[in-house]
């Protein structure tokens, strides 16, 4: 649940980028940070462990300014995708308001996408949250690799595997080149704000 401070008129929303390891979650945040740093005037925090590997999470906060007198602060998080870091994922999901599920379009990652989505469903249930009630956007990443002859999952397959029940907005994207990175983020912010407003009314 978002943090709302009526005294300071501040709303903090937490959006988590979830998905299988090496799917491009950090690359999404890095792109947003590099591309819009001048406008959003923030710092990206990367929590790393020994050996300089990203094992914990990345954090990108930014302010979208005052809306109806409230200062809206957005916090973007990523989680480590590898199976063994489930404890970290659970922790980062605490108090989540919106989720971007970054799926890997590579054919060889099909099963990992499905398992990761199941893992998200399970971890949300720990906080008594249902994935179907949560603002959620799917991003099918690495679509640019098709041009290099690397076999990718067709969109229909990705939709069938991941979105046949959820029926949430989805985007084809390339986090590396930035294609649809901001669109994905804008969509989840809008959905999250709308959902928060619904809950507060």
């Amino acid at each position: 649940m978002a943090f709302i401070n009526p005294k300071t008129k501040e709303v903090q929303t937490k959006i988590v980028y979830y998905g299988p390891g090496r799917g491009g979650k950090t690359t999404n945040l890095e792109y947003i940070y590099k591309k819009f740093n001048q406008r959003i005037k923030t710092d990206m925090v990367v929590i790393k462990t020994h050996g300089d590997r990203t094992l914990f999470f990345d954090f990108l906060p930014f302010d979208i300014g005052k809306i109806k007198g409230y200062d809206i602060k957005i916090q973007l998080y990523t989680v480590p995708g590898q199976v063994k870091y489930d404890a970290t994922r659970k922790l980062v999901l605490r108090g989540v308001d919106g989720i971007v599920f970054v799926a890997d379009s590579l054919v060889v990652r099909r099963e990992k996408n499905i398992l990761s989505l199941k893992n998200l469903r399970d971890n949300l249930s720990l906080y008594k949250k249902n994935i179907s009630d949560m603002p959620l956007v799917l991003q099918y990443n690495k679509r640019d690799l098709a041009e290099q002859g690397i076999p990718l999952l067709p969109l229909q397959t990705l939709e069938q595997d991941l979105n046949s029940q959820l029926k949430v907005p989805s985007f084809e994207a390339s986090a590396l080149s930035g294609t649809n990175v901001a669109q994905t983020m804008k969509k989840i912010v809008l959905m999250t704000v709308a959902s928060l407003q619904k809950q507060l009314i």
Partner: peptide
């Protein structure tokens, strides 16, 4: 904040 940033249609040449 994030306008004119990327293409909603997929741009293969941007890689």
């Amino acid at each position: 904040l994030f306008g004119d940033s990327d293409n909603s249609s997929f741009d293969h040449s941007s890689h």
